[in-house]
Design a protein around this nucleic acid. Structure first.
Lengths: 148, 148
DNA sequence: CTAAGTGCAAATCGTTTGCACGATT
DNA sequence: AATCGTGCAAACGATTTGCACTTAG
């Protein structure tokens, strides 16, 4: 790839160092994917691919997948399943929230972790289960779609 | 299909009436799928297909999908996403529970709805959101896999 | 008899993989 | 220069669809 690597709108502090430190290489593709994840928030691999294309044509979708897998493994991004299709990725630093997905209108509401504190505590105390908050999605019906 | 329809090990009371009442036909395939869902609990379409095959060979996988969609629409069955692969189906009457999925060992724990009552209440009061309990899956780490 | 349901095969969607070429260290 | 990373194309698993044939009502 003939594109140079400019200083990124730093999405993750020291992302490049983190890569090198663990023996991975710093490539334009990896930077672009990370930036796309940061910019789009909750985007599918395909959407991330499209976003990346806007800067550098020719980045293959399989590279997107491989890169997302790597970044997730390194703890920089995480994914959640909203609905039935492809998973959506977001920065790990932005993971501490829960998604409410309306089964009728499809609207996705993001809420802070406060509402689920009691759940987390209950699962911990009663089942010894450590909840992965960022991965939690609650399906149901939103205010507008509920019968009054 | 040359198989007669015997009285089923009734999985859903009046399932056949419910179908006819809404203008749908009662077929051996639909009965078999419903029985398979009831018997297997948390089974994927493919597993349900395999179970159905044991009684009647030649039932196509696409029929399984179409039937599950219908039964779900009629409120007889529901599905949940445990992990990344195919969704799992179970009887709607058996829906009032939550799944805890361990990201490390993959173990699935089923717990009663009590632990999430506070969550349901909070989402309702604070966001007007009506939670679909049967569809809720919590990812995290189970007691055995947590570092002590 | 007639519309609804099914089987079959092909199409589609999301994702993964093998391999040769190119780029980072 | 030696690997690691990428692009490309093909393989894959899960699900959907078009269409002709079958069957419940």
């Amino acid at each position: 790839m003939d594109r140079e690597v400019p200083s990124p709108s730093v999405a993750v502090r020291g992302w490049d160092e983190q890569l090198r430190a663990r023996g991975y290489r710093v490539t334009p593709q990896r930077q672009l994917v990370l930036e796309a994840v940061a910019r789009l928030d909750h985007a599918t691999p395909e959407e991330i691919g499209a976003q990346v294309q806007q800067t550098a044509r020719g980045v293959n979708i399989s590279t997107i997948y491989r890169t997302l897998e790597l970044l997730e493994q390194l703890g920089m991004v995480t994914h959640t399943h909203l609905g039935h299709g492809a998973p959506t990725y977001h920065l790990a630093s932005h993971a501490d929230h829960v998604h409410l997905v309306c089964r009728d209108c499809g609207r996705i509401t993001e809420i802070g972790p406060d509402a689920i504190r009691p759940l987390i505590t209950a699962l911990d105390e009663r089942h010894g289960f450590e909840t992965d908050v960022g991965h939690l999605t609650v399906f149901g019906r939103c205010q507008e779609c509920r019968p009054r």
